[in-house]
Amino acid sequence: MRKIYSKLMENLLSGKFVYTAEIEAGKTTNLEEIVEKGKMLKNYVTAINVTDNPGACAHMNPLIPSYVIQRDVGVESVYQITCRDRNRLAIISDLLAAAALGIRNVLAITGDHVIFGDNPEAKPVFDLDSATLVYLIRKMVDEGVDLAGNKIEGEVKFHVGIAANPNAVPLELEILKIARKVKLGIDFIQTQCVFDIDVAKEFLREVRKFNIPVLIGICPVRSIGMMKWYIKECPGGIKIPADMQERLIAARKQKGKKAVLEKSIEISAELIKELRKTTNAAGVHIMAIGFEHVIPKIIEHSS
């Protein structure tokens, strides 16, 4: 049994249903908006993820908002790190800084390819991948050394999470990939958006053997265009059941644009209720970038 360093980990292991949310650092020099969003979410979630150059768009370094949220808002952060933009030296140095600043939760991900981003001419790095990043974090936490075995002064206290896609086809491949990381030593799994309860159930069944807490990704949509983007274009592919699509389209037709989001809040809450009632999911991770104000509503409706 590993030591528990964070509230998030404590709650994930407690059997209590956990809510987490996500915010973007943004292409900005302004931290106030981030603090405001954090304050709005504080009483609803255990932790807030800060994304690392999401969609390969150059944002403020997520370590800063991750720290500021903990310091000024008083809610734990999950510092996301991708392997796309920095080599192992830069990642080790960021992790040391994160440890020094009291960050306790890290999400290790590969990162979308640079061609999707706002500087598509950039050189993709990928010196590490999400698995070798987990390997690095374990070395830092468990052995107090970096990748090459150089000793680190002071303790490194991180819980490391990974991302997974329950919608993946073939799913077996996704499960094998998770198995590889479980062997390295991960603390939690956070999934890509799930709209289909059966997709969540099958995934949870498949990963049960690993005995790792799973946060299922919940993504409300605010337009039909966004719904279609998930289905057709989102990296990894997302399944949205036909009847759910119809409900959203009907809301749009009957009550106009704004009704889509209202309907989506209702659907997200239903999904969470179903997860709480019928699965062993440790909680949900709600992603509503740019319209975070719906997160408290979804949580209220679901509990």
Binding site: T110, H113, S130, K177
Partner: peptide, 29 residues
């Protein structure tokens, strides 16, 4: 693999295709 991953695939794999170019097979698939 578009990302040169040694422990792939990445999360962008979509029904066996690469996120960078959907006409191309994902190497890890």
């Amino acid at each position: 693999c578009a990302k040169g991953l040694l422990n792939g695939p990445c999360g962008g794999m979509r029904e066996g295709k690469c996120e960078v170019d959907p006409t191309r097979d994902c190497a890890w698939a």
